[in-house]
């Protein structure tokens, strides 16, 4: 599985790709939410290691708008909670809870497309995939933190060389062909 914390560390180093190679953009991302106990100390200490703007953008690309565009100076408990959910957790969400749109927020990303794939069966580890739709999405009743969001399918695209890193069954494939290695 891949969380937004991992996405925030990835950069493209395909042959000749040295600038504007971060962050990779999600395409056709499918998202799964898994519950996880919060460790506030981890979230507070870890945060300086991440690029805030890339994190906020990535969260929005997968349908989470809980984080403010500018990094708040104060790390209060509420922000820690939000970050935990965006970064770490995965909860049992249904498609309908994503689609209920009391506030009528426009989904900001144009890079995501509706996917008409059947929902997967549940297992003890895997909750049903939430398909991210390029349509009106509301903020979730309980906003997820970026540690809870797992990207299960789709791809990550380098903003510079447009190399496509596919994500399948929760595993991004970062392997480059020999002639693509920088």
């Amino acid at each position: 599985m891949v969380r937004l914390i991992t996405h925030n560390l990835l950069a493209c180093h395909a042959k000749g790709c040295t600038t504007n190679n971060f962050p990779l953009a999600f395409r056709d991302a499918q998202v799964e939410i898994q519950e996880q106990d919060i460790n506030p100390e981890f979230v507070r200490n870890m945060l300086p290691r991440l690029e805030w703007k890339a994190l906020v953008d990535a969260a929005r690309q997968v349908g989470d708008e809980s984080l403010p565009a500018e990094q708040p100076e104060m790390m209060d408990d509420e922000l820690v909670q939000k970050l935990h959910r965006v970064l770490m957790e995965v909860r049992n969400l249904t498609l309908s809870s994503l689609l209920a749109s009391p506030n009528g927020h426009d989904y900001p990303s144009t890079s995501l497309r509706t996917r008409d794939t059947p929902r997967t069966n549940t297992t003890s580890l895997s909750t049903p995939c939430i398909h991210v739709l390029s349509m009106h999405l509301s903020p979730l009743p309980h906003p997820r933190t970026f540690l809870q969001i797992h990207i299960t399918e789709g791809a990550m695209i380098c903003p510079n060389c447009e190399h496509v890193y596919p994500i399948s069954n929760g595993i991004p494939n970062m392997l480059l062909a020999e002639n693509e290695i920088g």
Partner: peptide
């Protein structure tokens, strides 16, 4: 076990 780990395929 749960929660799942973040893994990447690469060299």
């Amino acid at each position: 076990g749960s929660p799942t780990r973040d893994v990447l395929r690469g060299d």
